[in-house]
Design a protein around this nucleic acid. Structure first.
Lengths: 214, 214
DNA sequence: TAGATTGTTAATCGATTAACAATC
DNA sequence: TAGATTGTTAATCGATTAACAATC
């Protein structure tokens, strides 16, 4: 029985991974939790606690081997293995994702794009042909993609999500500004841009009030 | 001296706002913390605690007036007043944001787009002309936009961020997969899509392991 | 007035930080 | 061996939940 890791820890892992990636690119061989904590503006204690949820990756008196730790976090994040991604909805965000080659570098390969709009069907985005939504079921059942990026309008999102999960999708990257209620074995990661912008707006106001008090 | 609100609370506010928006569209007049908690899958206690950070918006024996609470949360989030947004970097994500009309509905108006690429300069995105980065300083100093959306490659992000804040920008919506270290009066909200995708990858692996154990 | 539900205090739970023995 | 730094336990801090008096 494996331990459930708190989401606070999981949220931090990609950031560790990014810093370690930069260190290894600079040919840094070893790093202590103290050095890393200063770079990242967190406590050394937190780094050690976080990592020890998954195992002892360091060595007393030495610290952590950068390359090794980088690879181990990659394994924890599951990006040691490649993922196939389909994009559902060839609107602005869907096309932006399809064009964003950074994902491929991390092993996420966009394999297909779907849309309902006949004017878009047949055209290409980043070398990938946009297909009709009518082919979606067949495509999922035959190729079993790992992830569906949902970039359809929010009205369609819940029903499309229900469909694709019924057809075999187990992971949804949801860009629609709405909640998806799906069966327990489907994992969801939300990207709610409007909420992000609202939080920025909150910070702007809070900052202004702080300055007015001074 | 106003109380500092924890970021956990602030993260939840836009979600309350979204649910209240849906309720008012359905002409629901009042709601209790208990009802809302059931819809949102949180505790009623948390809703009441969160709201009471900002004031008593409810009434004993009655609950909360939907329209009133919606507007009050809007004020807390600072979206009762409009914001002007400039986009720096007319790549895929920059153009996707420029095209995303949902922001306008919340009072965020895209007023300009900038890029270094001569092939893009002069063309239009959603009716907004892409301008040369050479005009960026002048534009900021003259029109004082509220927010700069940073959608340039990660190598350029830190220096562009330093420039625009020196010229008068106080809020950055950062899409570059890198950290921005700026002076304390600049507020930053990060959207790190690759990190989001990595968290989804983690969840996929964790879910698989869970199923293998059963 | 009785019932409902808030606002708020107190209790619990979980996450972060500090401390230090283990060990390279 | 001495010094450094981890892994891990214990202490602290903060966030969430429960409880209930206040009040509409």
């Amino acid at each position: 029985m494996q331990k459930v890791i708190s989401s606070a820890v999981i949220k931090r892992l990609p950031r560790y991974y990014r810093y370690l990636d930069e260190l290894r690119k600079k040919d840094v061989v070893r790093i202590s939790s103290k050095e890393l904590s200063e770079k990242m503006n967190v406590t050394a204690s937190q780094i050690r606690q976080d990592l020890n949820n998954f195992g002892g990756f360091g060595q007393q008196g030495y610290g952590y081997n950068v390359e090794y730790l980088y690879n181990e976090i990659g394994k924890i994040l599951g990006i040691d293995l490649p993922h196939t991604v389909i994009i559902i909805g060839a609107g602005n965000i869907g096309r932006a994702i399809a064009n964003y080659d950074d994902f491929l570098r991390r092993g996420f390969q966009i394999t297909a794009i779907f849309d309902v709009n006949p004017e878009l069907i047949g055209s290409e985005v980043n070398g990938i042909r946009i297909q009709s939504m009518e082919h979606l079921r067949e495509y999922i059942e035959e190729t079993k993609p790992d992830i569906a990026a949902l970039t359809v309008p929010k009205e369609q999102a819940p029903s499309v999500a229900a469909d694709v999960t019924a057809w075999g999708i187990h992971a949804i990257w949801n860009f629609a500004p709405t909640e998806l209620f799906l069966s327990g074995d489907v994992v969801i990661e939300n990207v709610h841009l409007t909420e992000s912008l609202m939080r920025l707006s909150y910070k702007i106001r809070a900052q202004k009030q702080k300055q007015d008090e001074e």
